[in-house]
Structures are given as structure tokens and as C-alpha cells.
């Protein structure tokens, strides 16, 4: 059964069609949520909440975008709403623990922990999310604006400022300058 047919059946109330849609898109959704939350546990919880919301709102899905994009859009708004509602102080200890777990996962597969991930983790959510959507998933500023319910101009400036902050954090400016100085002195 193709995705289109599954969506039509799901809209008619077919539970199996819903389940198949969710199973097919679950890894994509969780991996996206890991990238924006930087926490695998939060990502799994949010994925389940997203699917519950999706059952409620399936009637509103117009099929213009891909189903996975629609899921991402719901997940993003759920995450932002949750963050806004629970304005309690950030649990740095838990976040640190989640970071350590992700580092461990990467290192256990002989992958180095990329400094860019630390830099990305230090950015605010409303800045990190558009960066991930733009530079990893390749959505346009307009699409991201629709997903996050902000203007494309705001998305553009958030992405730009976020990359500039990450660049500072990665000390790319300093590295290149010192490299340039090194070549100058060697000449």
C-alpha cells in the first residue's frame, strides 16, 4: 500500500493504516527530534505525543506536503509549546547526561564527537530548529516559516545569526586567521 492510500484509509478511521504510517515514519521522526532536542529520551516521548496529535488532526492534513514533513511540523510546534509552557529552569544535569549518552553512542561506533554538535546544543531552540531544518533537511525559508508559524525573514535571520554564533563557538575565525598568519610568517 502506498503512503497516499494509507493516508486516505487513515482519514476514514482505519487503525491499521495509521499504525503502518507511523511505523514507516517513526525512525525519521525520532532522528529529527534527537537533532532538535539533543536528548534521545525526550525525542522518543515527543514522537509518541506527535503521533497522538496526528490521530486527532489527520482530517486537517491536505496532502500538499509529504506526510513526514507534516509530522515534523507537528513535532516542532509540540516541542516549542512544551518549552514555553514549562518555563521552569533548564535541567542542566539531565541535559549534560543526555549529551554524554550521545557522545558514548558515537564513540562506541568509532565516531568522534563533533564540536559542531556541542556548539549547536548551546544555541536556543528557536535558533537550532531552523538551522537543522534548513541545513540538514533542506527545507526552504518559506516552508520553515510555515512550520514554525513565523515569517520567512525571521527564519532567515535566525539561521544566519545561529550559524554566526556557532562559528564563534567553533573558533573558525581564529583558526583561519592563525593559519593565515602561519603561512605569512613562513614566507
Amino acid at each position: 500500500m502506498e503512503e497516499k492510500d494509507l493516508i486516505i484509509s487513515a482519514k476514514r478511521g482505519d487503525q491499521l493504516a495509521f499504525a503502518m504510517l507511523f511505523k514507516n515514519n517513526y525512525p525519521f521522526l525520532v532522528k529529527y527530534l534527537i537533532k532538535i532536542t539533543m536528548n534521545p529520551d525526550t525525542a522518543e516521548e515527543l514522537a509518541q505525543e506527535t503521533m497522538a496529535k496526528c490521530v486527532e488532526k489527520i482530517g486537517l492534513f491536505n496532502g500538499k506536503s509529504k506526510f513526514s514533513s507534516w509530522l515534523i511540523s507537528i513535532a516542532t510546534n509540540l516541542y516549542i509549546d512544551q518549552k514555553r509552557r514549562s518555563k521552569r529552569e533548564r535541567n542542566w544535569k539531565a541535559q549534560e547526561e543526555a549529551f554524554r549518552r550521545m557522545k558514548w553512542h558515537l564513540e562506541s561506533r568509532n565516531e568522534e564527537w563533533n564540536d559542531a554538535l556541542s556548539a549547536l546544543g548551546k544555541l536556543k531552540d528557536e535558533i537550532r530548529i531552523p538551522i537543522v531544518l534548513k541545513h540538514y533537511y533542506g527545507y526552504s525559508y518559506e516552508e520553515i516559516g510555515e512550520m514554525m508559524k513565523i515569517s520567512p525573514g525571521t527564519v532567515k535571520s535566525r539561521v544566519h545569526n545561529g550559524i554566526m554564533s556557532a562559528r564563534e563557538e567553533l573558533k573558525l575565525h581564529g583558526e583561519q586567521e592563525s593559519a593565515a598568519a602561519g603561512t605569512r610568517s613562513s614566507r
Binding site: 487503525q15 491499521l16 495509521f18 499504525a19 503502518m20 507511523f22 511505523k23 517513526y26 525512525p27 525520532v30 532522528k31 534527537i34 537533532k35 534521545p40 509518541q48 503521533m51 497522538a52 490521530v55 550521545m102 553512542h105 558515537l106 561506533r109 565516531e111 568522534e112 563533533n114 564540536d115 559542531a116 554538535l117 556548539a119 549547536l120 538551522i131 537543522v132 541545513h135 540538514y136 550559524i163 556557532a166 567553533l170 573558525l172
Partner: peptide, 28 residues
């Protein structure tokens, strides 16, 4: 650098997908 970092997350953080029954139960 950011793209590379995200790519390594994509490839190396394992995601366990539950079976179909779990999703059916969630929908019900």
C-alpha cells in the same frame, strides 16, 4: 561542520522502532 555533526548523529544514534501492534495500540 554542523552538517557533518548532524549526519554523524543520524547514522550513529540507534533508534529502536516498536512493532506494528504498539502503534495500533497507541492509535486505539
Amino acid at each position: 561542520k554542523i552538517e557533518d555533526g548532524l549526519e554523524s548523529l543520524e547514522e550513529n544514534v540507534p533508534v529502536y522502532t516498536p512493532d506494528l501492534q504498539f502503534f495500533e495500540h497507541l492509535v486505539a
